[in-house]
């Protein structure tokens, strides 16, 4: 995530990481998750699901902060995130 200034506590606050899962065949391609992902890691995929929509794909899996907003904005119960296993060391920004 791009920040306009680095928070003073950025060095010791651990940002949660998440893994996004898409239940593709439930998706109707409204794009709400893509539009409202705060870290903009989602985009429309090129392929179709069985209903003929383009489900979202995860463009930048490492960017997920597990805010779960995609999960709660999705009208289709088609996307959710789970917390990623915590790495031993915080990756460098």
């Amino acid at each position: 995530m791009k920040l306009w200034r680095v928070p003073l506590d950025a060095g010791h606050v651990k940002v949660t990481r998440g893994i996004v899962h898409v239940i593709e065949d439930r998706c109707k391609g409204c794009g709400y998750c893509i539009e409202y992902c705060p870290t903009h890691i989602l985009g429309f995929s090129k392929h179709y699901n069985k209903k003929g929509y383009h489900p979202p794909q995860i463009l930048n899996p490492d960017g997920c902060v597990h805010c779960r907003y995609c999960e709660i904005i999705c009208p289709e119960f088609a996307i959710y995130s789970v917390e990623a296993p915590k790495p031993d060391t915080q990756p460098e920004e």
Binding site: I23, Q57, I58, P61, E71, F77
Partner: peptide, 22 residues
Amino acid sequence: ESAKKGKTQSKQPPRHPLDDWL
């Protein structure tokens, strides 16, 4: 590459957290 990565992640049977209520 990340797109591929996204796809491999959904390999496990996807189960939405609200599936019990749905």
